[in-house]
């Protein structure tokens, strides 16, 4: 595999035996995963299985009670979110979470909040506008007044603005038309091909397994399966949960 930007050369995200709880209720118990560079790793699981909690733990929003998380060779367990982001992790959160009172362009600039170099920011803006020409036309429009599809573009573009080593994408298809969902999967594959590792949380199992290199299945706060997409398709738990 060629590696012009050197991005494949980071050490993976290691999640090692984490337990996460809100109050007294345990949500994740003994979850371990490896998200490797150059790959799309997907996370499957029913609603309430703990997928969002896992992402919150990785981002430092809900630190784990036990276990550890390491990224690129550094322990990030319990680190503040902005420090974790500074290590090269970005997230396209569930529900898009755009800043409604900011213009599309300001939203994109927020994605590169920790980047100080004006040239780099300008270059990335141009890249995102190349990916989504529609955003270029509407760069001055308040994001809150855009259509759902356009807001999805803002959210994806914003996630790319920091040129992350690892991009976490949480339920990108939610509420989008089938055409836009297909477009999304095409873009996710392209992001990975350009050197960013992707950790993809999706409900859309068939399409997800079609583009993923590896996958985990979460059920009731535990990892019940992990493997190559072909293996997961044959897995009893996955079949029962998704393929009927």
């Amino acid at each position: 595999m060629t590696d012009p930007g050197g991005k494949f050369r980071f050490k993976p995200l290691f999640i090692d035996g984490i337990h996460v709880a809100y109050g007294k209720a345990g949500v994740l118990s003994d979850v371990s995963m490896e998200i490797l560079p150059g790959r799309i790793t997907c996370l499957l699981g029913a609603n309430g299985a703990g997928k969002s909690t896992l992402i919150r733990a990785v981002l430092g929003l809900t630190p784990p009670r036990q276990g550890s998380i390491a990224f690129d060779g550094m322990d990030i367990t319990g680190a503040p979110t902005h420090a974790i982001v500074g290590k090269g992790i970005a997230c396209i959160p569930e529900g898009r979470r755009i800043f409604p009172k900011m213009s599309a362009q300001e939203n994109l600039l927020m994605g590169a909040f920790q980047e100080r170099s004006k040239e780099l920011i300008r270059a990335r803006l141009e890249k995102v506008y190349g990916l989504f020409p529609r955003l270029a036309e509407r760069r001055a429009q308040l994001a809150g007044t855009m259509s759902g599809g356009e807001q999805a573009m803002v959210s994806i573009g914003r996630g790319l603005m920091s040129a992350p080593k690892l991009l976490i994408i949480d339920e990108p298809s939610l509420g989008l038309s089938p055409a836009l969902v297909n477009e999304n999967f095409r873009i996710i594959r392209r992001i990975c091909e350009e050197g960013t590792a992707v950790f993809l949380v999706e409900q859309n199992v068939r399409q997800t397994l079609a583009i993923a290199h590896y996958g985990y299945v979460l059920s009731q706060g535990r990892v019940v399966a992990g493997g190559l997409p072909a293996e997961l398709k044959e897995n009893e738990q996955v079949r029962k949960a998704y393929f009927g």
Binding site: L59, L61, P80, H82, V85, P93, R97, I98
Partner: peptide, 12 residues
């Protein structure tokens, strides 16, 4: 506008 989204963008 969105405290958590701001944190995810790397705001301290």
């Amino acid at each position: 506008q969105d405290e958590e989204a701001a944190r995810i963008m790397g705001v301290n």
